[in-house]
Design a protein around this nucleic acid. Structure first.
Length: 102
DNA sequence: CGTGTGACCGTTT
DNA sequence: GAAACGGCCACAC
């Protein structure tokens, strides 16, 4: 059922707390997916109702069409952005994550 | 059923 | 730190 995978990914993205971010790979892993690409496809379809702006690449960057809104929304949630790329070191919600309250 | 593309990832140069 | 290469999975033609 591709819908199950669809919903699982949706839940993983929605589970990201405010002021925190996660990479496509992290979301995919949390959803039990193997490829991060599926996550992108899901966000493209139903991402309209999800905090997709909290999902970035492993580099902290994101696709060109999202950068603008990403920058605005994340900054509005208290996420620190450095030269167009998010500071994963303090906002990444996985692997030795640190509290954003520095 | 084969090919091409994509909101990707990890390693190497 | 940035660019290039290959590999992964799902979808449209």
């Amino acid at each position: 059922m591709d819908e199950a995978r669809h919903e699982r990914i949706r839940a993983a993205v929605t589970a990201i707390p405010e002021g925190w971010v996660a990479t496509y790979g992290d979301v995919a892993a949390a959803a039990g997916e193997r490829s991060a690409r599926v996550v992108g496809h899901v966000l493209r379809e139903d991402g309209a109702d999800l905090p997709w702006h909290r999902v970035l690449r492993s580099d902290g960057t994101c696709a060109p069409h999202l950068v603008e809104e990403q920058h605005a929304r994340l900054r509005a949630e208290g996420v620190e952005i450095r030269d167009g790329r998010v500071v994963l070191a303090n906002h990444r919600l996985a692997g030795g994550s640190r509290a954003p309250d520095v």
